[in-house]
Design a protein around this nucleic acid. Structure first.
Lengths: 219, 219
DNA sequence: GCCTGTGAAGCTATTCACAGCT
DNA sequence: AGCTGTGAATAGCTTCACAGGC
């Protein structure tokens, strides 16, 4: 399994989450592809294809064995020993992210946060120590951090991303509304809330127009 | 132009943002597709295709006229009279979102927030009044709200989404880590931060493995 | 009968490559 | 010479549809 497609990974992460929520005690439970599809707002063919992609099989009789499936999902999604994460930018959004993750993804720990505001330094927020941004390279290297979360304002994002990459971080999750330019060999994913809201508003508008058109047609 | 593809819309929103940031005074400026591609971390062919999709053309000589392009992007992305937005769930994440948007998307105003915690009600947070969740239907209808942002905990998301949809909201931006089941005719988009982080960590891990493999090959 | 696993078809999105313009 | 606009090629993703198993 060299490298799974991005979309498949998103769904696998979601499958794991809904399975855990639905089967607090998964032993001896089974799910059919159409059941998991329902839980994850997907469809049976997609579920079967995704599980096929990670080499997991069920039985036509009973479906997929939940506990085994969860183990397979863990094997794909988690590093056996866990991975350390750093967050840069302890503003409103950074704090929200810090409060969001603990407990949600047990194999990923946000072990350090960074900010440039001296007021925020050396405090502990949601269980995470805030360091001066000046010590970014030092702490990333010492704590063996392989994943970075960027929650700084847009103008600072590119520089922070480059420093994280240079310090050895290989995956970046960027919440800043600025596109990053990074050398190949570093993965990054943008969470573009502004674009997401623009898009949602656009489709809301189109749907409203369509609905009005139908209304008019009826008369 | 019946309905633009989702991906195209995300990029158009980004194009507008980077153009505004790069050309504070756009009059008489021009951009080539490769320049805009650089700014948006895309590629020239994609930029040309996207602009073609919205029927905007440039000249081979000078490229795209920035002010005109911005006007075209506004025409596609914005409702002429603006759209009203409601946010449900004034927790840590909800507050971060409330503080994030004002000023960023001038045609979209978050005009109301809702929460079930009596402590939070009737306060004004980041310029937005917080109402009791009980008054959701009433306020959505009175304020003509067409877009909803869901920042409640996962177990409450489905119910909130259904209430918003029933009250007439046509587009939902869901930050809760729970998939929604909604009738057709309502658009929704999930911002799944947990899946995004899982994915980022996965690729960071794969990249580390690949890098180590190359290292070993060299010896 | 109702499921899974999967080749094949269908669809969407991206990228190529070049004619046409200035 | 170097760009845009775009048909055509490619790549990537989703869905169909059915053989095979219990």
């Amino acid at each position: 399994m060299t490298m799974l497609p991005e979309k498949t990974l998103s769904r696998l992460s979601l499958f794991r989450r809904v399975l855990l929520a639905t089967f607090p005690n998964p032993t001896d439970h089974h799910v059919f592809s159409h059941e998991l599809a329902m839980l994850a707002d997907s469809n049976p063919a997609q579920v079967r294809r995704d599980l096929m992609t990670i080499g997991f099989s069920g039985s036509p009789r009973k479906g997929y064995h939940v506990a085994r499936l969860l183990a397979s999902l863990d094997a794909v999604l988690d590093a056996p020993t866990g991975q350390n994460v750093a967050l840069v930018g302890v503003g409103q959004l950074g704090r929200a992210v810090l409060s969001y993750f603990p407990g949600r993804l047990p194999k990923l720990s946000i072990v350090a946060a960074f900010d440039s505001d001296p007021m925020k330094m050396d405090r502990v927020i949601y269980g995470c120590r805030v360091h001066s941004i000046d010590r970014l390279e030092e702490v990333v290297s010492r704590e063996q951090i392989s994943v970075g979360i960027i929650t700084v304002p847009a103008p600072a994002a590119q520089d922070v991303a480059r420093r994280l990459a240079r310090a050895g971080v290989l995956g970046l999750l960027n919440f800043a509304p600025a596109p990053l330019n990074l050398p190949a060999g570093v993965y990054f994913e943008n969470v573009d809330m502004a674009a997401a809201l623009d898009k949602t508003a656009y489709f809301a508008r189109i749907l409203a127009l369509n609905r009005d058109a139908m209304q008019r047609e009826k008369t």
